[in-house]
Design a protein around this nucleic acid. Structure first.
Length: 499
RNA sequence: GCCCCCAUCGUCUAGUGGACCAGGACGCGGCCCUUUCAAGGCCUAAACCGGGGUUCGAAUCCCCGUGGGGGCACCA
């Protein structure tokens, strides 16, 4: 690998659906390698197939990349010297290159109809032969082909794959891959509507855009030798080829697909980038997570920021074997990155989740809540569950819920009543002022500290699991705390009367 | 069916002939801490797919099986 010229890498998605973590990882590696080497990162949209085009897909794609913190130096939205960056706007380029190949004998016109092709395929399948073009038009003379084309007969341009010899395609992670040319089909390069297929468009663009390293899915491995042949036919230099392993479903059975993706609105795990955001994951955590599925730095470090990754990323450390996705590891990384946030930053990230839950968030109060929940949440949406009560006007535990563990309603009522008068006698309700007296009270009553705090926790927060009780009381406010405990005492006494 | 790729704990992985009775992380289990829940600390269980070679020596190299994955479109 000569470093004479700066590296240029591209991410070339096709806007045919929602963008998922698999392509996000490819984009991440592209980005990391470009930044690591001081090269350029190019975004190219491969939208030659109008039938599969999905409106809005490009927008969601760009939104997702931005959310992850990826930026590119050239692309459809930012321009650049090698544009246009949408293949649908580069039509003439592909036509000219395809014709050039025909002129030089590396490709030919094929007039076979889709129907005939389908029939040929069917017969081959019946005879259990590999499905491929039978070569009917390969033998057409140049003059004959010209004549039929001029007569208006529709045609495609096919690559004239050598019938003899072998092709060696070199992948950075796998080394040389040798295949018999006889097993490589005469692939269509230019469709009858004059638009190119990937095998032509990507090769032409990578060359014209000066791409030095191609990172792409290993799904391209089967046609890899074809691509090497096409580039050779043009007389161009091969880029460094790197085929990234695919992601497998969480069970490891089959590659990850929409089939394995749930609806985040139902609390299910999704594979789509923008769903990950909705599920309460931090982009920092997602980046850390996908970076480590197929790449490792050494035998120790696992927590990485984007800056760390740029500093340490190396193509040679990529692994060629497929990886099963593991959401519990994402949860782990998310917890780590949440804890690495400043309280101010955490507050900012939390706001949309409370709003989404229909709660009126007071930013000042949320900022005070943030440190209390920072080490208790693994995803941002969990904050609503554990700290939503701070933003509700009241809580409404039932008498049954208020009864302390292992205590009767009467004992619980007495405990709350005594705690209330204790708290009323305090100049302020803070951990420093209230904790010891409450502990002493539990001791006097012969109950566990946990039992007393448990009842008060339900009384004040309305839930059995909450941030630390006394700290929470400070934020809820003295008057409201006293009121809630008063109501709890009433409820417990009513219940004690029934029992 | 044909072609291609891959193969270390359940999962993600470190490991490029001796430093490996195989290391880390997630998850699991236990202990400590503790007002709940977490976080944190400590500890346990858990793997080199099988068979042949090569070598003084193989997780590491070669071959054959097996298993897994991917691909066989006028999609990308």
């Amino acid at each position: 690998m000569s470093q004479a010229s700066p590296t240029r890498v591209r991410f070339a998605p096709s806007p045919t659906g929602r963008s998922h973590m698999g392509s996000a990882r490819t984009a991440l590696y592209d980005f990391l390698y470009a930044r690591r080497t001081g090269g350029r990162f190019i975004l190219r949209i491969e939208d030659t197939d109008r039938k599969r085009f999905v409106p809005g897909a490009e927008e969601e794609l760009i939104e997702g990349l931005h959310w992850l913190g990826l930026t590119w130096d050239e692309g459809p939205d930012v321009g650049g010297p090698s544009g246009p960056y949408r293949q649908s706007e580069r039509g003439e380029l592909y036509q000219a290159h395809a014709e050039d190949l025909v002129r030089r004998g590396h490709a030919y016109y094929c007039f076979c109809s889709s129907e005939r092709l389908a029939q040929v395929r069917q017969e081959q399948q019946k005879k259990r032969q590999p499905p491929r073009y039978d070569g009917l038009c390969r033998a057409l003379s140049e003059a004959e082909a010209r004549r039929r084309a001029d007569a208006g007969e529709p045609y495609v341009i096919r690559f004239r794959t050598p019938r003899e010899g072998t092709t060696t395609a070199v992948d950075l992670l796998r080394g040389p891959i040798r295949v018999e040319n006889a097993t490589i089909d005469d692939y269509i390069l230019l469709k009858s509507d004059r638009t190119p297929v990937y095998h032509l468009a990507a090769m032409v663009d990578d060359h014209l855009m000066g791409i030095t390293h191609v990172l792409r899915s290993s799904e391209w491995l089967p046609t890899f030798p074809l691509h090497v042949l096409v580039i050779e036919a043009f007389g161009w230099e091969q880029p460094v080829w790197v085929h990234l392993s695919v992601f497998l479903s969480p069970t490891g059975k089959g590659k990850m697909s929409k089939r394995h993706s749930g609806d985040p609105k139902l609390g299910e795990k999704s594979i789509y980038v923008m769903d990950l955001k909705e599920m309460g994951y931090l982009p920092e955590a997602v980046v850390n997570w996908i970076a480590l599925m197929g790449w490792a730095y050494d035998d120790r470090a696992e927590f990485f920021t984007m800056l760390d990754l740029i500093d340490k990323f190396a193509l040679e450390k990529l692994t060629p074997s497929p990886a099963a996705i593991n959401y519990s590891k994402l949860d782990h990384f998310n917890g780590l990155h949440i804890r690495a946030l400043s309280p101010d930053e955490l507050t900012l990230r939390l706001v949309p989740f409370f709003e989404r839950a229909g709660l009126a968030v007071d930013p000042g109060r949320l900022r005070r809540v943030a440190p209390l929940i920072q080490e208790r949440i693994r995803t941002l949406d969990e904050a609503v569950e554990i700290a939503g009560f701070f933003f509700r006007p009241s809580v409404s535990p039932t008498g049954a819920q208020l009864v302390g563990k292992g205590l009767t309603a009467r004992q619980s009522a007495e405990a709350v009543r005594r705690a209330l008068s204790l708290l009323l006698g305090l100049p302020e309700i803070t951990p420093a002022a209230a904790e010891q007296p409450l502990r002493d009270l539990a001791g006097e009553m012969g109950i566990e500290v946990g039992q007393l705090f448990g009842i008060l926790r339900i009384a004040v927060t309305g839930q059995p699991v909450s941030p630390p009780l006394l700290e929470s009381m400070v934020i809820v406010g003295r008057d409201e705390v006293l009121g809630r405990i008063q109501r709890a005492a009433d409820l417990l006494e009513a219940r004690a009367g029934v029992e």
